[in-house]
């Protein structure tokens, strides 16, 4: 089955999420005027790294980054991949925490943060337990539900 559409949806959603969540704040604090410059530079850097990553992957057809790195020995691959693991763990904790705090500020002033933690963790665990296919398909469904809404909100 062709999964490219699902991967695109997933990528677009995770980037949109990050963009609306933390990006504006960082950009606004970065400079007083000409905000387009850091945005442009960051996008160029992002596109360059994405190109680099995809170019590298294209040398190893039908393999992902972990199976490629397995070929160069355990220690080296551990050294290379451990930061990535650390990064994922830290971002997960950080994002859930930030999201819950933001929700308490905006929506749910009286709800304790642990309740929101529980909700987010339970839902994401449910989706994760069902496997990668479910994650991708869910992403398409959510994308088609919420993307028109986001567009509408930005237009009006």
């Amino acid at each position: 089955m062709d999964k490219s559409l699902q991967v695109i949806c997933m990528g677009a959603m995770s980037h949109l999420g990050l963009m609306f969540f933390i990006y504006p704040e960082r950009i606004i604090t970065s400079t007083h005027q000409g905000h387009w410059e850091p945005i442009l530079i960051q996008s160029l850097i992002f596109i360059f790294f994405l190109w680099l990553y995809l170019k590298g992957l294209s040398y190893f057809p039908q393999q992902d980054i972990i199976s490629i790195l397995k070929g160069i020995g355990k220690t080296l691959s551990f050294i290379l991949l451990f930061p990535v693991l650390l990064y994922f763990i830290v971002t997960t904790i950080e994002l859930i925490n930030a999201y819950a705090e933001l929700t308490t500020i905006i929506f749910l002033a009286n709800t304790p943060t642990w309740a929101i933690f529980t909700l987010i963790i339970l839902i994401s665990t449910y989706i994760a337990v069902k496997g990668i296919e479910t994650i991708l398909r869910t992403s398409i469904l959510i994308f088609s539900i919420f993307f028109p809404l986001i567009l509408l909100m930005n237009v009006f």
Partner: peptide, 27 residues
């Protein structure tokens, strides 16, 4: 329980439930 956030997560949950159903190998 969670207000607007609950509506949102409810929709996500139902989407995930729909997405997780596979019937004879066909999602």
């Amino acid at each position: 329980i969670y207000g607007v956030l609950g509506v949102l997560t409810g929709l996500v949950f139902i989407s995930a439930y729909f997405a997780s159903r596979v019937i004879f190998g066909i999602p």
